[in-house]
């Protein structure tokens, strides 16, 4: 089912939480909503679920306008950061709850619950009390419960935020694959842009109630629409420059410009766009962090700006060392000043 938000605005008194947001989640697609806290991503999700009625605009699921349909009649599955399991019921009863509300016969409910618990690899926990489970297990139960009703759309609100890093990575891969297999249409809210990149087919970056950019993970990372997106998604170096005659002039150095920009521009260069060795940028390494698979270094440029570099440990300069940096023109993105 396609989910469509058209010009949705949500105001709480004087505050505009969501400001004229239009988004379409295609059938089978996972769309990530990312942004800093307070950017309106959760309100957008709650509007899609039916817990908030938009001040303006419409919500439709599968082409039907559901703007004023209450959540229990919308066929949406919800997964929360706090898991929100029903502690008065066993794991199996939690999974069966939605089916019971739909008056599905007991044996059919049991069969469906078993199937989902197996799918999520927690069949052995069926008779346990949710409070005795670990965070990762609880989240699997939460997901099984939401999937049990075969929702037209699955809404996930920061589902991995409470989990430790290693478990998070494993669950991201597992659940990402599961959502693909089941061909579920999903809206995935997270403040963690790297999680969105793993889990989502497309990402909508929100700020201040507005959608700043919608695109695939590589589009958003490599060709950010503006400085906010460049800054929020991944680490970025943003350097002011003047584009003239196919070259970028930084004042202390020049390089070739990637495409036809003219005038004052901001150059977005990811840490991996710099190469240490022979190049026009003279810089002094100020700090150096060994991270195992790579070294992150912060270097000062002649004009006082600093850049973050990502270097192979074998070639990493030491702190205090003078280095020459080359900028790989095909890996930078230029934003014209507006």
């Amino acid at each position: 089912m396609t989910v469509q938000l058209a010009n949705v605005t949500k105001e709480f008194g004087q505050t505009t939480a969501v400001d004229d947001v239009s988004l379409t989640v295609q059938q089978g697609e996972t769309l990530g909503l990312v942004g800093p806290s307070g950017c309106g991503k959760t309100t957008t999700l709650r509007t899609a679920a039916g817990f908030e009625t938009p001040t303006d605009g419409t919500v439709s699921i599968g082409g039907t306008d559901v703007t004023h349909v209450p959540p229990e009649r919308r066929s949406v599955g919800l997964v929360f950061q706090s898991y929100a399991l029903f502690d008065n019921m066993s794991v199996r009863e939690n999974v069966e709850f939605g089916l019971k509300m739909r008056d599905v016969a007991a044996d059919e409910r049991a069969a469906r619950a078993r199937e989902l618990l197996e799918l999520l690899d927690i069949a052995e926990l069926a008779d346990r009390d949710p409070t005795t489970l670990s965070g990762g297990q609880q989240q699997r139960v939460g997901l099984a419960r939401a999937l049990a009703i075969e929702p037209e759309v699955l809404l996930l609100d920061e589902p991995m935020t409470g989990l430790d890093a290693k478990l998070k990575t494993r669950l991201q891969e597992e659940i990402g694959a599961l959502l693909d297999d089941l061909d579920v249409t999903a809206l995935y809210v997270t403040h963690d842009q790297s999680e969105a990149m793993v889990m989502c087919d497309r990402i909508a970056v929100m700020n201040d109630g507005r959608v700043e950019q919608v695109g695939s993970p590589d589009e958003v990372y490599e060709r950010p629409a503006n400085e906010f997106v460049a800054d929020f998604v991944g680490t970025s170096n943003r350097l002011p420059a003047t584009a003239r005659d196919g070259r970028l002039d930084f004042g202390y150095a020049t390089t070739a410009a990637p495409n036809g920009h003219e005038g004052e521009v901001t150059v977005v260069a990811r840490p991996e766009a710099f190469r240490v060795g022979d190049g026009p940028f003279e810089a002094t390494v100020r700090e150096r962090f060994y991270l195992g698979e790579h070294v992150r270094a912060v270097a000062d440029l002649p004009d006082g700006e600093s850049v973050t570099l990502r270097v192979d440990p074998a070639e990493a300069p030491a702190a205090g060392e003078q280095v020459s940096l080359a900028l790989q023109t095909d890996r930078v993105h230029v934003l014209s000043e507006s």
Binding site: P71, E72, L78, F80, F86, R145, I149
Partner: peptide, 27 residues
């Protein structure tokens, strides 16, 4: 987490009174 528990139940198809009686009160 009253709000999230309640919203979970409602998204699963329980009306508000049913949510209150079967999920909120027992908890």
């Amino acid at each position: 987490d009253l709000r999230q528990i309640e919203e979970s139940a409602r998204s699963l198809g329980a009306s508000w009174p049913r949510t209150f009686l079967t999920v909120i009160l027992p908890n």
